[in-house]
């Protein structure tokens, strides 16, 4: 599914990029095992048009309706949602921690902005992740070049705008190298 060649259908509106939705879940009762991550993640849909995006999205549960420790990832086709992927190795992500009530709406607004090319940072955006956790949920947007402050600033400002976040919500930037050192994402 990850490598499937997708084309816009007749009458469909093409996106700038093709994307894959991925899903990963940690089995209940099991501790985190970073080496198992790549085994537990799979592609659930691939799309290249607005209409295919909605089809894929509407067939998935909304984050607010999911249970347990899991993540939904939406990445450009060809980029794996892993720190070690070529596209991600010098990159980082903006992290926003959300009270659970806001997760579904924020995720939807984020992915619409991403596939609609609202971030205006060339091809810097790699993907987005929503992480369902015990007491809060976390939304992240990953970009290629952690050290490009012009890019990361613009992503942050667009994120704040599209998520309609109050000024009190803290956004944190984390380089993937730091996550690798910490052995944890958040």
């Amino acid at each position: 599914e990850m490598h499937r060649e997708v084309k816009p259908g007749s009458g469909e509106h093409p996106l700038q990029y093709s994307y894959c939705f991925w899903y990963s879940k940690r089995p209940p009762g099991r501790p985190a095992d970073p080496s198992a991550f790549e085994k537990n993640i799979r592609v659930v849909a691939t799309f290249i048009s607005v209409e295919q995006f909605w089809k894929a999205y509407s067939h998935m549960k909304r984050p607010g309706d999911l249970n347990g420790h899991c993540d939904i990832h939406l990445f450009k086709q060809g980029i794996k949602p892993l720190w070690e992927d070529e596209a991600n190795k010098d990159g980082g992500k903006w992290i926003v921690r959300l009270r659970k009530h806001f997760t579904s709406r924020c995720w939807e607004n984020l992915i619409m902005a991403m596939v609609g090319e609202q971030f205006m940072v060339g091809d810097e955006v790699c993907g987005a992740v929503v992480s369902l956790r015990f007491q809060e949920d976390i939304i992240s947007i990953w970009n290629k070049t952690a050290n490009n402050s012009q890019v990361t600033t613009r992503i942050r400002d667009t994120l704040r705008r599209v998520l309609n976040l109050p000024p009190t919500v803290i956004m944190e930037y984390k380089k993937h190298n730091q996550s690798i050192r910490d052995k944890t994402s958040f």
Partner: peptide, 21 residues
């Protein structure tokens, strides 16, 4: 080059199309 950009309103309108179901 030119980028394909869609705003939120347009994406939501497309959601109602039969092609999106």
């Amino acid at each position: 080059g030119t980028r394909i950009i869609y705003d939120r309103l347009f994406l939501l309108k497309c959601r109602d199309s039969p092609l999106s179901k």
